[in-house]
Amino acid sequence: MFSAIYVEKEIKEHPRTLEILGRFPSLPVIECDRYGEVFNRNAQNFRIQKQLPALILARKYGNLVLPTPEGYGFEGQGSYYFSHMMNCIYDCRYCFLQGMYRSSNTVLFVNYEDFYSDLERHIRNTDNAGNYYSGYDCDSLALEPISHFCQFFLPLFGKYPNAMLEIRTKSTQVRGLLEAQALENVIVAMSFASEAATVRWEHKVPSLKKRLEALVKLQNNGWPIALRFEPIIFTDTVLEEYESLFKWVFSSLNAEKIHSVSLGEFRMPTEFYKNISKLYPDEALYAQAINVQDGEVSLKDNSGGATIEKLETMLSDFISPAQYYRCA
C-alpha cells in the first residue's frame, strides 16, 4: 500500500505513531521536521508519485475545524469540515485532489485529541449542534484499520446527539462501525458513479457491489446512510447508465430510511483542472469540452442538456424531495 513512512520528529514517539509503525515493520521510516517538507515541495509529480505513495505521519496545527465551502452539504445550522487525513489511497481520475495537492502521499495527522477538542468547541459554540463533514480532503474510512478514526471520534457525536457527522467514503472498511452502537446523528455517505464510470475512472476503489453490500450492512445495523451520486460525467449514455444504477442501488436499500441523496456534476476550480490536465494529457476526460464560470470548470453537456434535471426526475421515483439535494 505504501512505499515508505515519513514521520515528523515531533510525533515520532506518539502512541498512535508507534502503533502505526508497528503495522509496517518492513517499510523504510524516514524522519522529517514538518510534513510540508515532503508534501508541499515544488517539482513533484502527483501522477508518478501515485505509483509509489508514502504515508506521512504528522501533527496538525492551526484551525482544525473549518467552515465548509459554500454549497457543500446540507443547508441550515453551521457547517464545518475537518480532515484528519489529506489525500486518498484510491486513484479516481476525476478527483479534484489530484489538482489540489502537489503530492500524492497520504498525510495522517495523529493528534486526534486536538481535533476532538476543536470539534467539541465548535459544537458547543453552535448550541451543541452543527453539521460536521469528514472526507472532504480524503476518504474517511479508507485507512480505518490503520487510523481507527471511527473508534476515536464516534463517542464525541454520541455525546452530542444534535451535532451531525457525515463520513464521506467509497470504502468498505465498515467493521468498526458495525461493531459499534449505531448513532442516529452519524451518517455514512457512500459515493457512487455509474458502472461504466467506475470501471473507467475509479482505480483501486472497492467495486460498486462491495460498496452497496457495506451500505446494506450498515443500514441493517441501524446506521443512517446517505448516497452521493457524484461526479456525474456527461457521456452519451449517462442517463441509461444512471437509470440502471439507481434501480440496482434502491432495490437493495430501504429507501425511506436513507438519510439523504445528492447529485453533483463533475466540476472543480479552474486551477485544479489545469493542474490535472497537465498530469494526465492522455486522459479522455480532460479532452472533453468544458465550461468555465466563476473560476470553476464543468463539462459541456453535449447530450442536449438538462442531464442533471433528468437524473433528478429519475431519482424522484425512489426518494422523497425532502431526502434530496443537489450539490451546488
Partner: peptide
C-alpha cells in the same frame, strides 16, 4: 532516502523507490 545539507540544514527526500 533523505539528504540533509549540513551547512543550510535543509533536507530533501527522493522518491522511496
Amino acid at each position: 532516502r533523505k539528504i540533509t545539507d549540513q551547512g543550510t540544514r535543509s533536507s530533501y527526500y527522493p522518491l522511496p523507490i
